[in-house]
């Protein structure tokens, strides 16, 4: 693939659109999440700012923009400011290979999923930098947890995706969608229910969301790795957290739920409906389950998800080999 002017313009437009999507997603999801939390606890959630509190999230982001960026003493300046940037920008790249619609892909690379999995590692790195650079015990503990958790959960996540890749015989996200049909019984979730379950659990662990939100456990670590960040630094971490959630939801929709294919009319709306259903699922379990302990977290991963993922992968490999 030569990098012609057209490709360059395409990437530029895609990145701008993705930034828009990320910001809109964060604003909407913060509102949805707070509303859902409220309703689950039988209270109204944000209510006073704007009709039904709809502009609460926008006001909050304005406040974050206007806030002073406070730098504590003895921080590592370079890493301290690099971390939020490093958390935010690689996520832009991760959205590029996702097929939103039949013709709507930021950059249709043949090995899309490898790109996503490779660059997702930057998120962990930024957490580590943030915790290390802020010279704060809570930050450092949060960073240590973030690293061991993300490294652990990446493995079953990849194993689950590998099963689908074996079955489809392709690393391209578009081809994986094309291999599935338009109706729910033709989707990979029915062929690989175990892989879907493993992916669903590791997705929560990978994005550091409750009940696996140990790197940011408020009751133990104040805010974990971003304890010392204020203003825009915090906002960037926040944005990238929600963007990561959206990304894993899109990947899940693409791999297991038929991507942009759906009953009646294939199209971009199906991708978004499916991804946001998974987003809602993440929010829902956050307000249902208590946080697990760290040893439990790793036990779930190493003792259950990893062997299950391996068995699933072996069985898939054998079946794929025997039934050409």
């Amino acid at each position: 693939m030569d990098l012609s002017l057209v490709t360059f313009a395409q990437i530029l437009v895609a990145v701008l659109a993705i930034i828009g999507l990320m910001v809109a997603n964060a604003v909407v999801m913060v509102y949805v999440e707070r509303k859902a939390a409220g309703f689950i606890q039988r209270r109204p959630g944000p209510y006073e700012v704007g009709p039904w509190g709809t502009i609460q999230a926008i006001c909050d982001s304005m406040k974050l923009l206007a806030k002073q960026i406070f730098v504590p003493a003895n921080v590592d300046w370079v890493l301290f400011f690099l971390a939020p940037v490093l958390a935010f920008f690689p996520v832009l790249l991760l959205f590029l290979p996702i097929p939103f619609g039949p013709y709507l892909t930021g950059l249709a690379v043949p090995d899309g999923i490898v790109l996503i999995l490779a660059f997702a590692g930057f998120g962990v790195l930024s957490n580590l930098f943030a915790g290390w650079a802020s010279n704060n015990k809570y930050g450092l503990l949060g960073a240590a947890r973030a690293v061991s958790q993300s490294v652990a959960y990446e493995i079953p996540l990849i194993l689950a995706l590998l099963a689908i890749i074996f079955q489809t015989g392709s690393l391209s996200l578009t081809e994986i969608v094309e291999a599935q049909g338009s109706y729910p019984w033709q989707w990979n979730i029915l062929v690989q229910p175990l892989a879907f379950f493993i992916y669903l659990v590791s997705l929560v662990g990978e994005t550091n969301r409750a009940p696996f939100d140990l790197p940011e456990a408020e009751s133990e670590l104040t805010a974990g790795f971003h304890t010392e960040y204020s203003g825009m630094g915090f906002a960037l971490f926040f944005l990238s957290e929600y963007a990561n959630m959206l990304l894993v939801s899109f990947v899940c929709a693409t791999f297991f739920l038929g991507g942009y294919k759906g009953p009646f009319l294939d199209g971009i709306w199906w991708t978004f409906i499916k991804a946001y259903l998974i987003m809602f699922f993440i929010v829902w379990i956050r307000w249902t389950f208590p946080r697990v302990r760290f040893d439990q977290l790793l036990n779930i991963n190493w003792k259950w998800l990893l062997p299950l993922g391996l068995i699933n992968l072996w069985i898939t490999a054998i079946i794929v080999k025997l039934l050409p």
Partner: peptide, 20 residues
């Protein structure tokens, strides 16, 4: 876990208790 999720789902759609 599923039972817990069912409870929160029911609560999500039940009337609120807050007094404004």
């Amino acid at each position: 876990l599923l039972v817990g999720m069912k409870i929160t789902l029911i609560f999500l759609f039940s009337p609120q208790k807050t007094v404004h």
